[in-house]
Structure formats: structure tokens, C-alpha cells
Amino acid sequence: MSYSAWIILTACLVGATSGLIGVFLILRKMAMMADAISHTVLLGIVIAFLITRELSGPHMLIGAIIAGLVTAFLVQWLHSLNIEQHASMGIVFTTLFAIGVILIATYVGNAHLDVKHALMGEITFIPWETMTLPFLGDVPVATAMLGFAFIIVLFFITAFYKEWKITSFDPALAASLGIPVIVMHYVFMSLVSVTTVAAFDAVGAIMVVAMLITPAAAAYLWTDKLSIMLVISGSFGIISAVLGYFIATWIDTSISGSMALATGILFIISFIFSPKHGLVSKFVKPATAKIMTQDG
């Protein structure tokens, strides 16, 4: 496959995976948590590197999952000590991120790991570093990792679809029915961490937030069904990836930046034209909307 094909495929996997996970981030009102985890994952990767001296997939994944869980746990813990939820997120993730940055600057400076790379990613370099997979041959490491993350996320979402739905909509009922709400919460945080770390090489910690939140927020405007929202959000992620790639080659700029821009464009289009919640539809048929709210 050509370099550009690998880059586009990788970008699409980022879009699809984060699109799926993003739906539940939005519905669980945890968009900020994506921001937090995307930063603290850096610390996980740095520590994994310091211990193993390797920047390979499995180590990074485990480091990231642990960092994500620690973040989720610390946020919950501070919150239980009477600190406002968003404040505790702010405190936890900036502190852990700072430790990560300091460790990079002091101990890991020479390795293939620097702050700019961590924040922005560099999808252009992805095809250079390959690994050999059975049946598939030489595959870029980042692409393989994203494919793996995509399969994991897809599996967890479809296998526990009704559990995600009920714990997102009504956690109190879920708990009273015996569904382990807290375990589901931490599993979800792990999935966010896996997605983030897999997308890390490609789009970096900052841009992955755009990929997680914006397609899902846009999809939310188009449908009233959870399953369809997942499909739309994943598709929006893929569309943004492709669109972003072409914008980037067209004006010769950063691919991850253009992908994030593309998600923004899709969101604005959705915000204006979506049939149910869009600006245009509100302007065109205010009468029917009124009847709906008065009904019953």
C-alpha cells in the first residue's frame, strides 16, 4: 500500500474508534474526562518507557490504561472529598500531565518521545515504522495498534450495548437492577484510555479530544436513536479523517490539525441543517415544534 493509503487508513481508524467512544462520553456528560485522560495518558506512556526502555505497543497500552484508571479514580476520590467534579478533574489531570512533562524533559529527552510529538502527533511518519503481522504482512505499528483498539472498542460496545445504555441513561436504576455501574465506569475509562493511546502517535493528545467529542456531538443532532447515533458518529469520524487528509495535502499543513478542523466543519453543518435540532429546521417549522411541546 502507498504511504498516503496507510495514512488515510490510520486516520480513518482514529476517526471511527474515537467516534464510537465519543458517543458515550457525550451521553455520560464526561466530555471533560476525555481531555483529562488524553493528557494523563502521557504520564502512563513515559513511566512505561522508563520501566521497559521500549516504546512498543503493549507497554504503552498498559501504561495508558493504568494512567487512565488512576485519573478516573483520583477524580472520583477528590470529588468524594467535597471538591467540585470539574475542579477535581482540572487538578488531577494538570498535575499528572505536569509530572509527565517533567519526566520527559529530564529522563527521556533523547528518546523518540518529546512533548510536541505527544501533543500534536505526527501521522506523516507513521508508515516508516512497520511490524510484520500474520496474513497482513508489513503493517505500520500505529495502524496495527489502532486496528486493535478499534476491534476492542467495537467488541465492548456491541457486547454490552444494553448495559452501556442503561448505565448512561439511568445509573440509579441500573444499580438497583444489579448491573455493576462502577465496574462499567472504570471499563469505560479504560476504553477511553486505549483509544487515546492508540490515537496518540497519529494525532496526539490534544487533537484526539476533537476526534472524541466533536463527531459524537454532531451525531447527537441527527438522530433520536442510540444505535444510529453510534453509526453516524463513527462515520463522521471517518469522513473527518479523509476530509482532513485532503485539506492538509491541499494547503500543505498538519494532517491532525486538519482532521480536527474537519470535525468542526461537520459539527457546524449539523448544527445548522440537522432535521430535528438544527437552526434551519427551527426556523422553518416553529409551529409544529410548539404543538409537540404542548401535546399531552
Binding site: L27, S168, F169, L177, G178, D224, K225, L226
Partner: peptide
């Protein structure tokens, strides 16, 4: 206690009572 903007319909919400 719940978000009524959640993408789901009435029948679905009632069905949730059976999830256990």
C-alpha cells in the same frame, strides 16, 4: 434524575426495567 434528551424512546425506557 435522568437526562430526557437521551436518544431513546418510551418503549425502550420501559424495556430497561427488564435488563436485570
Amino acid at each position: 434524575s435522568v437526562d430526557w434528551d437521551f436518544p431513546t424512546n418510551a418503549l425502550d425506557v420501559v424495556t430497561m426495567g427488564l435488563y436485570g
